[in-house]
């Protein structure tokens, strides 16, 4: 599907000029390029070690991909709106430990016989806490007039600090043991939680590209003054955008809980950078108004494929950073090329 998608609407209203060369058409389709890059990676890693081409590895990659794509799509929406959300990684850890505390006390208390109810409450806690932090972000931006970078830096520090203080640095266990039992693959390489993430991402795709929510987001990111003049309640929409991002991070926090059977204050630390990397590799512009969910999905898939690929190949996984850096450089260059190619606005 990604191969046939076209370049997203340009903020300034410029259209990609009728391709003057095949090359230009090609580089304008970020999703197509990403798909090729990903396929080449899979082939390359499989040649290095044939075990890479297996359901087991696919399962591992998807387990990493799911939480990353959740926060990355949330981040994408913020970035399309012209903002940035640095707090998502901290929200992952924070919601993870808060819901772990809640689940532990319920599971050791009145709800010991109902593990799945406890887990459902755990999801709810993650969602509520994520939404609240997102709300605080938007209040800081809308009313304290902080720029998004600073506002979300504030909540990043507050959330990761509180997670450490509340837990004294130790993981919080003691919730339902059924959590880890949900992680193994169910259909092919897909576990139940991963399938739910796929559904969530599809819903967000429709939200961003097929609904008014998305149109408003692109409009604000392209030119917030024009958006306001057109009658969009910018403050209210910005609030929705950051709350959505917080919600996604909260869900990622719960996903980590399911994987580890515990909430750890260090979980998600620095994940905002992975999310931003996935978004940028996916072809979005940090200046706002440009981006596609399918690009971010592929960006996240490439990042997690690199992680597993390097481990399976026996290469020091630290090389991942270098590979990611190179991918970002290439993606950003293509982005810049597209901009100049788009012509004067």
């Amino acid at each position: 599907m990604a191969t046939t998608e076209t370049h997203s609407p340009n903020p300034a209203g410029t259209q990609v000029v009728v391709a003057s060369s095949r090359f230009k058409t090609l580089i304008s389709n970020q999703q197509f390029i990403l798909l090729i890059v990903w396929i080449l990676m899979v082939i390359g890693f499989s040649l290095i070690n044939h075990i890479f081409f297996s359901v087991g590895v696919a399962e591992n990659i998807l387990l990493d991909w799911a939480p990353l794509v959740l926060i990355a799509v949330g981040e994408l929406i913020v970035i399309i709106s012209g903002g940035i959300d640095l707090s998502v990684g901290a929200i992952v850890g924070f919601t993870g430990v808060i819901s772990a505390f809640a689940m532990r006390s319920l599971y050791e208390g009145s709800l010991a016989e109902q593990p799945y109810l406890v887990l459902a409450i755990g999801v709810l806690v993650c969602v509520i806490v994520g939404l609240l932090v997102g709300l605080i972000n938007s209040l800081l931006i809308n009313y304290a007039k902080l720029v998004p970078f600073i506002a979300t830096l504030v909540t990043l520090g507050a959330c990761s600090g509180m997670a450490l203080v509340f837990t004294k640095g130790a993981p919080v266990m003691g919730g339902p043991r059924e959590a880890i039992a949900l992680s193994p693959a169910w259909i092919g390489p897909f576990s139940r939680p991963v399938l739910i993430v796929v559904v969530v991402v599809l819903i967000l795709w429709a939200f961003v590209h097929k609904a008014r929510f998305g149109r408003y987001t692109f409009a604000i990111g392209s030119n917030s003054f024009a958006a306001r003049a057109a009658g969009i309640n910018v403050k209210r929409h910005v609030t929705k955008v950051y709350m959505l991002s917080g919600l996604m991070a909260g869900l990622a926090g719960f996903f980590f809980y399911l994987r580890l059977g515990s909430g750890a204050p260090t979980s998600g630390l620095g994940n905002e950078l992975d999310a931003i990397a996935a978004v940028v590799i996916g072809g979005a512009a940090l200046t706002g108004g440009v981006g596609r969910v399918s690009g971010t999905v592929l960006g996240a898939l490439i990042l997690t494929t690199v992680t597993s690929g390097l481990i399976i190949s026996g290469v020091d996984p630290q090389w991942k950073r270098v590979v990611v850096a190179a991918l970002i450089a290439i993606a950003a260059t293509l982005q810049a090329l597209r901009k100049t190619e788009g012509g004067a606005s």
Partner: peptide, 23 residues
């Protein structure tokens, strides 16, 4: 047969072990 570093993040340690168990 292998060593890897998790930067004190349990999910990274989890990813490493998952892949090693496959490998």
């Amino acid at each position: 047969v292998d060593v890897a570093y998790s930067q004190s993040k349990p999910e990274v340690a989890n990813t490493n072990i998952n892949n090693w168990l496959t490998k």
